[in-house]
Design a protein around this nucleic acid. Structure first.
Length: 468
DNA sequence: CCTACCCGTGTG
DNA sequence: CACACGGGTAGG
C-alpha cells in the first residue's frame, strides 16, 4: 500500500474554524440566528452578555465552562458571519435575520457555499496574511462542482469524490488553490491515483476541513453522499449548480484591494476582514437560491418529475395567484392548499372544496389560506415552512405583527400549519389559536418585529399527515 | 493582561 | 476514531 502525498513544495493546508456542533448543525444554526435576531442592535458588552446567556440555555450547555461558551460564540459567528459590528454596537447580520425569519436552511447553506472562499475573514488576521502571501485564491464549492461536472462528462457515468481525495488532490495543493489548476487536470490526477490504488491519509484531523465543506454542500442540497462515502452531484439541483459554474462578478477578492502583498501589514488584513463580514452578507434577490422543495424531497430525477406532476404546482399557482413559484413559503402554501381540499373531501364535504382559497399576499390580512371546517365555519391558515436536508426540532417559527394580530382576533379560527420539509419526507404540525395558547402558557412568544414563537408539541400542536 | 480562532487530546 | 471541550497561543 502506497500513500499519496502532495509534493511538499505544493503543500499548503487550508483551514477554517472547526464547528463544535456538526451532529446538530441545523438546530444550532436556527437557534443562533433566532437568538441573535431577538437580541437586536446593542452595545457590544450587552450584546455579548445576552448572547452568552442564550448559548448557555442551549440544551447541554448549562454545565459548560465560560471558556467553551466564548468559543461557541466566536467560532460559529466567525464561520457564518451572523454578527455585524457598527462602532460600539453589534447587530444581527442580514443572513442571520433571513434565517431566523424564513428558516430556509437549504437556501442558507447555498448562500454560504456560494460566498465561501479562501482567504476569508473567518481566519485570524495573521493566518489570513499567510494565505495572502502564498497567493491562495480558491472557491471550493464552485471548484468541486466544476470537477464533478467535468468528470461526469468525460466518464459518461455518475462520479463521486471522497473526503480524502478532496483534501489531498484539491484543498491542500497550491497547484489548485494558488495556480488554478483546471478541474479537468485534477480529475486526471484523482483517476490516476485510483488506477494505481494509492491510499490517502484519511485521519479525522487531516480530512475534516475539506470534509466540512463537502458536508455543507450536502446541507445545501448541491451534493448527495452515498454509502460508499463518496459525494456526488445532486441531479435535481441543476439550476442552482449552474449559478456556481457561472458565478456573479461581485464576489470578494482580497487581491483587488491590495496594492502589494509583499508589504501587506496585519492591520490592513484586519480592515479587509471587516469588509468580509459585509461581503458574506451581500444582499441577494429573493429568488437567487430558492429552495425547490420537490427537489429536496425527491431522491432521483424521475421521482422529482413524478412529484411535480402529482402536485402540479403550476396549476395551483395559476389558479391561486401565488406571486412566485420559488420561495419555500409559496410552495408550502400550495402544498397546504392541496392538503385542505383533500381533507374536506375525506371528511365528507367535497362541496366545500371550491371554497378553499389562497389569499394574495398584497391583501396582508395576516394569513395565507381561507379554508373551512366541515360545519362550514372559516378556518384561517398561516403556513410556516422550514427546509433542511435532515430532520430537526421545528418548534420555532416567526409571526409578523400582522399575523399575530390576526391570530389574536380570529382566536380558535386561526391555525398555524407548521411544515417541515426534509430530504425524503414532509412533516406537518397544526397549531390552533396560537395567541390563546400563549395566554394559557402552552407556548412561548418573544417580541421581535412580531413574535418569535416556540411551542411544546406536548402542550399544543397536533401532528398530521400531509395529504398529497 | 484579555480575546478569539487554533488545535491537542479525552471520550463515548 | 470522529467529535467537541476547553486549554493553547498569538495578537491586541
Amino acid at each position: 500500500m502506497t500513500l499519496y502525498n502532495v509534493p511538499s513544495k505544493h503543500y499548503f493546508r487550508l483551514h477554517h474554524p472547526r464547528p463544535r456542533f456538526k451532529n446538530d448543525i441545523e438546530n444550532v444554526l436556527i437557534y443562533f440566528a433566532s437568538e441573535i435576531a431577538a437580541i437586536g442592535r446593542k452595545r457590544i458588552r450587552d450584546f455579548v452578555l445576552d448572547f452568552d446567556f442564550a448559548i448557555k440555555k442551549y440544551p447541554g450547555n448549562l454545565t459548560k465552562t465560560q471558556k467553551t461558551i466564548n468559543n461557541w460564540r466566536t467560532e460559529i459567528d466567525a464561520l457564518f458571519s451572523f454578527i455585524e459590528r457598527e462602532g460600539d454596537y453589534l447587530k444581527p447580520s442580514k443572513r442571520a435575520i433571513e434565517l431566523a425569519t424564513n428558516q430556509d436552511l437549504v437556501k442558507f447553506f447555498k448562500l454560504f457555499c456560494y460566498h465561501f472562499q479562501y482567504p476569508g475573514g473567518f481566519l485570524k488576521p495573521h493566518v489570513n496574511l499567510e494565505y495572502l502571501r502564498n497567493g491562495i485564491n480558491f472557491r471550493p464549492c464552485s471548484y468541486i462542482l466544476e470537477l464533478l461536472t467535468e468528470a461526469e462528462a468525460q466518464e459518461g457515468v455518475r462520479v463521486g469524490i471522497s473526503k480524502s481525495e478532496a483534501t489531498h488532490c484539491i484543498f491542500n495543493d497550491l497547484r489548485v488553490t494558488r495556480d488554478g489548476r483546471t478541474p479537468k487536470a485534477t480529475w486526471r490526477l484523482i483517476r490516476k491515483n485510483r488506477q494505481m490504488d494509492l491510499e490517502y491519509d484519511w485521519r479525522g484531523d487531516v480530512i475534516r476541513y475539506a470534509g466540512d465543506i463537502l458536508d455543507y454542500m450536502v446541507q445545501a442540497n448541491l451534493l448527495v453522499s452515498r454509502p460508499n462515502h463518496k459525494y456526488y452531484i445532486n441531479q435535481t439541483e441543476s439550476i442552482a449548480i449552474r449559478r456556481f459554474l457561472n458565478p456573479t462578478n461581485d464576489l470578494f477578492d482580497y487581491y483587488n484591494e491590495i496594492a502589494d502583498v509583499a508589504t501587506l501589514t496585519l492591520s490592513e488584513v484586519k480592515e479587509l476582514d471587516a469588509e468580509w463580514v459585509s461581503y458574506f452578507n451581500t444582499p441577494r434577490d429573493e429568488g437567487f437560491f430558492d429552495t425547490d422543495i420537490l427537489a429536496l424531497v425527491a431522491d432521483t430525477t424521475s421521482q422529482y418529475q413524478e412529484l411535480k406532476s402529482l402536485i402540479d404546482l403550476d396549476r395551483i399557482i395559476a389558479e391561486g395567484g401565488l406571486s412566485s413559484t420559488g420561495s419555500i413559503g409559496s410552495i408550502g402554501e400550495s402544498l397546504i392548499l392541496n392538503h385542505e381540499k383533500k381533507r374536506l373531501v375525506q371528511e365528507g364535504r367535497p362541496d366545500l372544496e371550491h371554497l378553499v382559497k389562497l389569499i394574495p399576499t398584497q391583501y396582508a390580512i395576516g394569513y395565507d389560506i381561507n379554508s373551512r371546517e366541515i360545519n362550514e365555519t372559516h378556518r384561517n391558515i398561516e403556513v410556516k415552512t422550514t427546509s433542511s436536508t435532515t430532520p430537526l426540532a421545528f418548534t420555532r417559527f416567526h409571526l409578523t405583527p400582522n399575523e399575530w394580530s390576526a391570530a389574536d382576533s380570529n382566536k380558535e379560527r386561526y391555525f398555524v400549519y407548521r411544515l417541515m420539509v426534509t430530504k425524503g419526507s414532509i412533516k406537518l404540525c397544526v397549531i390552533q389559536d396560537p395567541v390563546g395558547n400563549y395566554k394559557n402558557g402552552n407556548l412561548s412568544a418573544i417580541p421581535r418585529n412580531g413574535m418569535d414563537i416556540i411551542f411544546d408539541p406536548n402542550k399544543c400542536g397536533i401532528e398530521e399527515t400531509l395529504l398529497i
